[in-house]
Design a binder for these strands. Structure first.
Lengths: 292, 292
DNA sequence: TTTTTGTCTTTTATCGTCAAAAAACATTTG
DNA sequence: CAAATGTTTTTTGACGATAAAAGACAAAAA
């Protein structure tokens, strides 16, 4: 196999979801814009829709003939890019399987296990190495350094340094900046989630990421915003395998976020620092607890 | 071509340089240790030396028959790893040629120009992307973000944050720590270089890196020490294309380093902070000047 | 019995190839 | 003539293949 056509499949599914019976579709460039793909892919989508009898297509005339059925969609697992597949599989192994620090990682074995070519795995490992969890021995294998307490501490140290600075920069932004609107929206989502936290606490992870990423954008520093990728990956997988007390932890974090948001609005540096430190300290604590 | 045998070539040259006429060579594992290669490679080296009449080799008997001639060595350019070749070529293009921000980077063209396969280039770009100078558009090309003033400022901001913290950690280390000996050696090298700075100022770059890396090791944080790779690459290439006033700049930096080292010895936090800030501010200033 | 050598196996590094997707160019249509 | 469609070219994404290098195991020597 060479490249699979997951871009087509994903965009096709997205396009199907937008079809409205009887309506006319916009132009090809317009569709490409909406779906985030090239016109080449748009035309492949239209061809297929036409073949499947979903639309009639003749030059500018594109009319929806029938509503899409579930069977028209590509299966979800076929829409993932190889990159995502490899990342998920690797992380699952890290979480579920053998992950003693010092263990060596075998590219070929990994590729076989996941069912992809070696270059996909290689490229993933290179990209992943910047997270500080694996390391390459030149001309030889990769070594797993592992989710150890020292990893957590080093990560937390940088995180706190960066976020304190970003939070101060955020608080100092003029109230006319559109970023405040986004913060208001996030605040509202926190209030909404707080009401249903007992059942919907799993949604917190995504909201947490949105909130912290927003704060980091205020730093206007690519190294700071990029570093949040490391945090996000670690937290994402940390949430996956540390379910103990998840509900309460998230409830506490929501309250801390709300106080933190209030502090940002106040614009007072000392208040911001206190709220930020409190929240980051408890985040660090839970991460450490889950590792020992 | 597949992999070239540059590991062999480099190790062979290193082994040649160590040959002493009439002496007996140590065991294969011992040689591997010394040269930093596997026994497989050691045996290839011994085979070749034997064929070339440099040594006699029979099991444990390995005797040097004659001193190596210059012609026995592999040419230097054949001993570089592909990774190094690609990095150097890419950087040269960045420095010498077209490098307007926003420019797109073509993998195939780059591979052709350098004379390597596309995967080597791809892997290099992935590794290089963590330096914040290029960015990938998924399913499409890489974009050059460029050595812009904002890049320099963002880099300097992180650098200062990290180094201030590392320097404080360094100063707080007990005087029994072996790190102080290494600092003494670096200090002595500064004094030595200061005397001949007019002619030898080019050696400063390497000394600078040694000094700052040592300071960062005191942080005991992988993200901080890793970040110095970014600094090192940027400074290395910055030195390549900004020769204006190089001699004076280096002379000034040597004085700043010496004051900085003195501050570390003093163990006083305020003194350390002042010396560190002064030095980093002037480093930032020269980098910025060279970019506008 | 430990170290060294001889031999065999495994793994990485790198390439060329080819379909998918993007991008560029040419032609048509309103 | 500007925007949309039709067509061709370019570029990326992924694979399998293969020599170099590492690593493992067995036999021999000290």
């Amino acid at each position: 196999m060479t490249r699979q056509n997951n871009v087509l499949k994903q965009a096709y599914n997205a396009a199907l979801a937008q079809l409205e019976h009887g309506a006319a579709l916009p132009s090809e460039p317009e569709l490409g814009q909406r779906l985030g793909v090239s016109r080449t892919t748009v035309r492949s989508i239209l061809s297929r829709m036409s073949e499947e009898g979903l639309i009639s297509w003749d030059k500018r005339q594109k009319t929806v003939l029938r509503a899409p059925k579930p069977a028209d969609f590509f299966p979800e697992e076929e829409t993932d890019s190889l990159t995502e597949v490899v990342e998920r599989a690797f992380m699952r192994r890290l979480v579920e399987g053998s992950r003693e620090p010092g263990m060596q990682i075998n590219e070929l074995e990994l590729a076989r296990a996941i069912g992809v070519g070696t270059s996909s795995v290689r490229e993933f490992l290179i990209r992943f190495s910047r997270f500080g969890l694996i390391e390459k021995r030149p001309n030889s294998h990769w070594v797993l350094k592992g989710f150890t307490p020292s990893f957590a501490l080093e990560l937390a140290e940088i995180r706190e340094m960066f976020e304190l600075r970003s939070a101060q920069a955020f608080a100092a932004l003029p109230k006319s900046d559109p970023i405040w609107h986004e913060l208001d929206r996030i605040e509202a989502d926190h209030h909404a989630l707080r009401k249903v936290v007992d059942s919907e606490f799993k949604q917190f992870s995504a909201l947490d990421e949105r909130f912290h990423r927003l704060i980091h954008t205020a730093s206007l520093n690519r190294f700071i915003t990029d570093f949040y990728d490391v945090i996000a990956v670690v937290f994402h997988h940390h949430y996956q395998w540390n379910k103990a007390g998840e509900r309460e932890r998230n409830a506490v974090a929501i309250e801390e976020h709300l106080r933190y948001i209030g502090a940002l609005h106040s614009g007072d540096a000392a208040t911001v620092e206190a709220a930020c430190r409190t929240h980051l300290a408890s985040a660090r604590k839970t991460m450490l607890e889950s590792m020992s």
